[in-house]
Design a protein around this nucleic acid. Sequence first.
RNA 1: GGCGGGGUAGCUCAGCGGCAGAGCAGCCGGCUCAUACCCGGUAAGCCGGGGGUUCAAAUCCCCCCCUCGCUACCA
Length: 495
Amino acid sequence: MKFYITTPLYYINAEPHIGHAYTTIAADALARFYRMADYDVFFLTGTDEHGQKIAEAAKKQGVSPQQLADKNSETYKKLWKNLGISYTRFIRTTESSHEKVVEKVFRKLLEKGDLYKGEYTGHYCVPCEGYYIPEDEDSPLCPDCKRPMNKISEPSYFFRISKYAGRLRKYIEEHEFVKPDFRKNEVLNLIKSGVCDVSITRKNVEWGIVSPTPEKYTVYVWFDALLNYLSGIGYLHDEGLFEKYWPANVQLMAKDIIRFHNVIWPCMLMALDLPLPETIFAHGWWITGKEKISKSKGNAVSPGKIIEEYGVDALRFFLLREVPFGLDGEYSDETFKKRYNSDLVNDLGNLVNRTVNLVETKLSGTVAYSDTDNGLAEISAAAYENYEAKMKALALSEALEEAWKLVSALNKFLDEKAPWREGSTGVKQVLYSTVSGIRDCAIMLAPFIPESSLKIWRILGLPGDPCEYNFAALREKLPDGLTTQKREILFPRKK
RNA sequence: GGCGGGGUAGCUCAGCGGCAGAGCAGCCGGCUCAUACCCGGUAAGCCGGGGGUUCAAAUCCCCCCCUCGCUACCA
């Protein structure tokens, strides 16, 4: 079984902020989950590097657009490395293999008659890089940034979305394609309210892929960027790879680019006679106070700073645990600290620490195999079963809740058995079961907090890396004679 | 304006015809292996307002109020 997951390509004119990290971390957790569930996973992410904004930013900095792109895409790569992102491939839209695919697709659709030449008239907002209908025709202001827009009229090639809109509408109605569910109606309304053919070339934008037409236009950045989902797995140049992974199983993005992914993108695929992805999932935004976090609003929360203060796993955990995947979340240092201290420090970290301490003091650090029948194995199995279902449904926060049921059960189990008490019986069995349960936690949590899972693994004296085990390991008995290693505070408490 | 979601404990939310729930915060107690942790108990709600259907309504129907989305760029 294969699993192909994508994030959008991030537009490199901005520093990566928590929103970019959010999408990518979610995709990473899913990729890791499916790997551990024994799927053949392809996880694609990358950067979107064309367009007028990039050209202008480069000019301002006195470098070429390509130089700027090289530098900024590196920033993303670095952050992903720091966040433990296990992508299969990092694609850049300036790669020649991608550019060739865009050209080929353009030609293909042109020949098919799905692209045609027309005249585009509209108001263009340079900073927002978009065409909008202004409220006031006489003094057109961008509806978003309120800056004046230019009226533009130019020849352009259009993509015949209108030809596919009906088919798409029917498809969306009949399939579990648009996710979360509450978006389905929104998208259907979007389509019903009339979908215009979109202009996909720009006459006056130089930094972009040149259209294979008599006139040398550049390809509109979105048309260019969306095709990465195909080019990134070999479309039209590595058919074996492509056949293996297409269609995508999950395509993640934030809710603001739903339109591109749920309307334009599937129409492009239909025009190319390709099957549609299984799921297009739009998650919510992180806001501070009442505002969306974005660079232009100047309220960006820096993932780098959080990592420095709390560690990578704390950030990964917070983002995926705090808010039901799909809804907006409010970010604040307070909520972060609270979630960190209560879940990671108190529940999980302390559980590991107290258990290992008991193994050291009561069993001289060695956990011998014990036949046990105390209900913990059942709790673990049930937790996993629910966790697996939640993961497959993309209910990431709920999957974590399921795993936490085991964490809580283990803390409770220890309290009830009180192996530290004078004359406590069955200490060996109790600690064997507890350690085994912690092992199971480490496995289930590995997709979310891989670094910490590995630490737990090592502290328990288990060989290898939980990420390299698959979930089948949950059904195996904990090996005999494990020797716990030096205790380590997994998550230091924050005041 | 059109379409849609939501208003339930102090906070975040689940429940969507059959005794009002969870997590967090609060309070009380227990434990003292552990990162002042952990475990147990407990209080707390005219389920936005009004009307209706029903043996029975937080839940279904109608009206109203408030609120948030989408309709229009950015993860």
